[in-house]
Write a protein that binds this DNA or RNA. Sequence first.
RNA 1: UCCUGCGUAGCUCAGCGGUAGAGCGGGUGGCUGUUAACCACUAGGUCGUUGGUUCGAAUCCAACCGCAGGAGCCA
Length: 457
Amino acid sequence: MKHITIKNALGGNGANETILIRGWVRTRRDSKDFSFLAINDGSCLANIQVIVDQGIPGSEDIQQATTGASVEINGKLVESPGKGQAWEVTAESMTVLGSADESYPLQKKGHSPEFLREIAHLRPRSNLFGCVFRTRSRLAYAIHQFFQERGFYYIHTPIITASDCEGAGEMFRVTTLDGKAMEADPDGATDFFGKPTHLTVSGQLEGETFACALSNIYTFGPTFRAENSHTTRHASEFWMIEPEMAFCDLVADMTLAEEMVNYLIRDTLEHSAEDLGLFGKFVDKELISRLESVIEKPFERISYTTAIELLANSGQDFEHPVEWGVNLQTEHERFLTEQHFKGPVTVHDYPKSIKPFYMRSNDDGKTVAAMDLLVPGIGEIAGGSQREERLDVLLENMAAHDISSEDYAWYADLRRYGSVPHAGFGLGFERMLMFVTGVANIRDVIPFPRTPGNAEF
RNA sequence: UCCUGCGUAGCUCAGCGGUAGAGCGGGUGGCUGUUAACCACUAGGUCGUUGGUUCGAAUCCAACCGCAGGAGCCA
């Protein structure tokens, strides 16, 4: 007997043959002499309809085939006489592998994402979350494909790091010391690594070392931030993609980021079409048209200075004042992407004072070669910069940011030996997934979300 | 960390000072090539917790807990 996924069976593979399918019951409708089962195995969004005639082997257990139960069906894949599906299975035998009693929390009706979040171990069995996580898988694959096609090498940067001041937020301490021992040893001399260590907030600095050797590299891995933020866009554990390119300036960096976002949208539209259909129907009615408009329309590019002028002259009544030198607030980003340009915008050349030490100083002495890629609905989806490749300027910046030149001697060495202009950016994987699915909360695009006060499962 | 809103049946919610309700889901029965099926019957709740106001509190007030949204920070 040939086991076949429901996705393949619905595609007509194994037509008019006896096949074996396995999955979980979504609904059962009983008739006098037979029952309809809707079976889902997660291989695709759609269920397959199975007809279980009274009297076939296993049909005496049909009452056990309730919503949530797992079953194995031997049967013939035939064209369906009914409306609503092209193919169905006429069962020759049925086995209930695992029953599910009336306490099974997923019902035939739709559930709110908030309720499903409380049962994160069962929510992948819902339509919405099945679609999200199939799309997540495909998006991860597309990211590798994008870089591999362009000759980038995939680098695994460390998860545990002793670099503790990358300016990217609060860090989680990694230690084998207990509370008292840690208090007695603030320098971590007796700790596992002989110094204080943390979970990485970015692989960028390590990524730069490999770009200055293999030319074009990217990282794609988990990232940890101990910020106490309660928003729909922040998680304590998330995944980030960080390309880094040697012999590269800010303009080429922006181009790569824009091409990447475009590529990922195209890939999703092409390869996750069925799942996207559900998002377009139940999550965000304008999703598909928005994604299509993004890939048709070139990205807007404006300098930070121009953006400030534009905001100041917009006539909008912003809660936060608009003035040169301050960070763009959420309301400012929203105005730019959702009202003014109605699409993604890349903002570049930010004031030096609001950006980290490693960004390259521009000749005007006031700005750095930084860029943020903003998209409607989410805000910043990627941020990057050209890196400071001049040793003396870098050392000055480190001193100005109070960063130990001893701890970062290895980083400065990249400028001491064969320094080259280089640039890169970080793209939040979940934010990209939110953008292509329309799902509004980051907690609903991560299998088991970690947020302040929540590390269940 | 700050601001706002919401906690009533398994789920979604109504009730907003006077005997706890609906739809869906569950159970039972019926009917039907059905398709989030349909019809009938039925079980199910210390109204988040604690305290206060009141003759009387799900309803008004306070604190706490939980959840959600917004801000900041960022990806």
